[in-house]
Write a protein that binds this DNA or RNA. Sequence first.
DNA 1: GAGTGGTCTAGACCACACC
DNA 2: GTGTGGTCTAGACCACTCT
Lengths: 245, 245
Amino acid sequence: MTGSPTFQPLYEQIKSLITRSLVLGEWKPGEAIPSEMELASRYGVSQGTVRKAIDALAAEYIVVRRQGKGTFVATHTAPTHQYRFLRIRADDAEPTSDRHHPRTKFIGLQKDKADANIAAKLGIRVNQAVVVVSRVLVFDGRPLILDEITLAQSIFPNLTMEKLVASQGSIYSFLETAYGTRMVRAEERIKAVGATKHASKHLGVAIGTPLLSVDRVAYTYGDRAVEWRRGLCLTSGYSYLNDLA
Amino acid sequence: MTGSPTFQPLYEQIKSLITRSLVLGEWKPGEAIPSEMELASRYGVSQGTVRKAIDALAAEYIVVRRQGKGTFVATHTAPTHQYRFLRIRADDAEPTSDRHHPRTKFIGLQKDKADANIAAKLGIRVNQAVVVVSRVLVFDGRPLILDEITLAQSIFPNLTMEKLVASQGSIYSFLETAYGTRMVRAEERIKAVGATKHASKHLGVAIGTPLLSVDRVAYTYGDRAVEWRRGLCLTSGYSYLNDLA
DNA sequence: GAGTGGTCTAGACCACACC
DNA sequence: GTGTGGTCTAGACCACTCT
C-alpha cells in the first residue's frame, strides 16, 4: 500500500551505492573493489544481484572485470586506454589498431572567467574561474589537432604548464592521477569549418582549409560535466571513426 | 582431456541459434519471437540461459523486449527508429528529441559495376553489378545531406526509382520490407572536405564550402556488409552528434 | 588449494499487457 | 486470470590467477 510510483530494481540501488563509493574515493582508479561475495554481504543482497549491478558498471567502462583476479576501477592510465575517447585514425590503419599514440605539444594555459556558454555546459556560474589549455596533437610527425580545453578551477586548482608538460601521456590520465577525477563518458558535436588564421598557423595549412570542429563535453561519475573542449582537426590521411549500433 | 581450446558459453551458442533463425527469416522484422520458456524447451536449456542470450541480442538492438508482451524482431519501420543511424541534429534541438524527420528527394538511380574499392567494402567481386542511388535529405526545408548509396544488385535486385519514390520514410525501412534485409550496425569514417561543384549545386552553397564527408558501411545479421554510402553534409545550424563511452 | 569472476540451473515472486 | 518479460535468490560447478 506504499504505492511506490517509481519502481527501482535492487541492482540499480546497489549500482548507485557502488557509484557513491567511487565518487567518495573509497576505491581509487586502478584499485580492486571488494569481491562480489563481500559486497553481497555488505549490502545484504545475493551475489547475483551484486553481479548484475557490476555488469552494468562494467558495460559503461566504469569498472573492469578480470576473471580470477577481481573487479577494478577503470583508469585512463593504462596504455591501451590512454586515448579511449580519441576517434581519429589513419586511413590506412586498422580501426582496431591501438598504436596511434599522438605526441602532445602544449601551447598555452590561460586563466579566464566562464562566459554564459561555458557556464551552461559545465554547470557552473558565469564569471566563475576557469583554465583554458591549448595544445596540438601530433600524429606521425604531423600536427593534426588543435585543442582548446576548458576546466573549472574549482575542480582542478593550481593547474600549471609545468605540471602538464611534466605529465606523460593523455591529459585525462594526468587529471585522474593529479585530481582523482576520472572522465567516464563524453558527448561530441561535429561540424565542418574552414581553418582560421590561428588554426592554419598551428596545423600548417592554408586559411580556409576544411577542418573538423569537434565540441566535447566530458562527464565524470554521476553525469557531472567537468570539461569542455573544442578541437579543430585536419583530416587528410586521417578520419574520425564512429560505430553506429 | 578433450582440451577444447575455445570455450564457448551455452548462451553464446543459443544466441547463434536464434541469430540463425533470424537470418533464415523464421521470424520477420516486427514479429514476436517465441517466449523465453518456449525457446528454453526447444533448445533444452534453462530459461535463464535463453534470457542471457536474448539480453545480448537486445543490447545490439537486434531484438526488442516489451514487458508483458514478448520479444520482437527489431525494425526500422517504427517512426522512432526510422532514422536510427542518422546522427545529424539541429543545434538548438535537444539531442534526445526524435522529431527531426527529414524529407527525402531522390535524384537518380544508376546501374554500375563495382570498382576495387566498393568490391572490398561490400565483400563482392570487382565488376559485379551494383546500384547507386543519389538523394538529398531536406531538414526544415533546407537541403543538408547529399547521399550516394551503393548496393549490390545480387542482394537488392530490380530496384527502381519508382519503388523508392513510392516508399515512405527511410531507405532502410524500405529495404527491410521489400527485401527482408535489416541493417543491424554500421561503421562511419568522417572527414572535412570542400564542396564540389556537384555538391554545391544540390546543397545550394558555394563551391569549397566546408562539408562533412561521411563514409558508411552498413551490416546486416552476421556482420555481412550490404551497403556502402558517402554522404556530404552541410553543418550550418546542424551538427553530427556522437556519444563516447 | 584457495579465491576470484563466469556460467548454468531451478524456483519464487513482481510488473505489465491483454482478455 | 493468464501469459509475458523482469527481478531476486541459492546453490552447484567451471575457468582463471596466484601461491
